[in-house]
């Protein structure tokens, strides 16, 4: 079953075409890596899929809903984590979770136990009443991810979720992503760490607003005769004309 479909999706800002006719589909439960250099248009494409930005032309559906006409329905079915982790620093850990739970309309009675269960699962019970600002970065990212899937969305969009943390913390973060994927949540993730690209089921690589390659990491490496994703990426990125 396809949960994300994009048909010739295009976004222009004046003369500049940020996203140029991209078409792809994401299967349910998949971990889909959305790769591209800075400025390749991946954030713009993701913003269109989340209903934050209207496409100039083309069509897209998320969880079966049209991203343009049914953006409210789309919003109910997705989770989103921005590159800035987006937790409130002056709220406690549980207050942040309750806020996101509340915004997504989780029942008042259900929220409390759900927070406890989540913190237990993360081994994080002792920090329930800690202000988010005093947590280490790696923990903030895990917490932000947990907040993004707190309402059990069908799809979660992650915009460069692991920026600035060490490889060990990134490894732990990906374990959370696998857990979510095992529970049937589709994961759509942008990144520019190529080792992370290897963790994805399939990846697409964007260059100058177009998708230049889309397959599993294994097949891509074969296709480009490269020993790792880093080489695949560099072969494609070299063709970029922007910057």
């Amino acid at each position: 079953m396809k949960v994300i479909e994009s048909e010739n999706l295009t976004k222009r800002f004046g003369q500049f075409t940020a996203v140029d006719n991209i078409s792809f589909a994401v299967e349910k439960g998949e971990i889909f890596g959305f790769l591209g250099a800075n400025g390749a248009g991946k954030t713009t494409a993701m913003r269109m899929l989340c209903g934050l930005s209207k496409p100039t032309s083309g069509k897209g559906t998320v969880s079966g809903f049209d991203i343009e006409k049914q953006s409210e329905e789309v919003k109910k079915n997705i989770g989103y984590m921005s590159q800035k982790f987006a937790l409130y620093e002056d709220l406690k850990v549980w207050e942040n979770l309750r806020l996101y739970g509340g915004i997504y309309g989780i029942e008042k009675k259900a929220i409390g136990p759900k927070i406890d269960a989540l913190l237990h699962q993360l081994g994080f019970e002792s920090e329930k009443n800690t202000m988010v600002k005093s947590l280490p970065l790696g923990w903030k990212q895990k917490l932000a991810f947990s907040a993004a899937i707190f309402h059990e969305p069908k799809i979660v969009f992650l915009d460069e979720p692991t920026g600035g943390v060490d490889p060990a913390a990134r490894r732990q973060f990906w374990e959370l992503i696998y857990d979510a994927s095992d529970r049937g949540i589709t994961v759509f993730v942008t990144t520019h760490y190529m080792d992370e690209a290897e963790y994805c089921n399939r990846v697409s690589i964007m260059v100058d607003g177009r998708i230049e390659a889309l397959d599993s990491p294994k097949n891509l490496k074969k296709q480009f005769e490269a020993e790792n994703m880093d080489h695949v990426f560099h072969q494609l990125a070299r063709r970029a004309k922007r910057n």
């Binding site: 934050l52 109910k76 989103y80 921005s82 800035k84 620093e89 996101y100 915004i103 969009f157």
Partner: peptide, 13 residues
């Protein structure tokens, strides 16, 4: 600045 606005805008609120 914190990026929280984006997250709220993506929500059904």
């Amino acid at each position: 600045e914190l990026g929280t606005m984006e997250v709220i805008l993506v929500s059904p609120m």
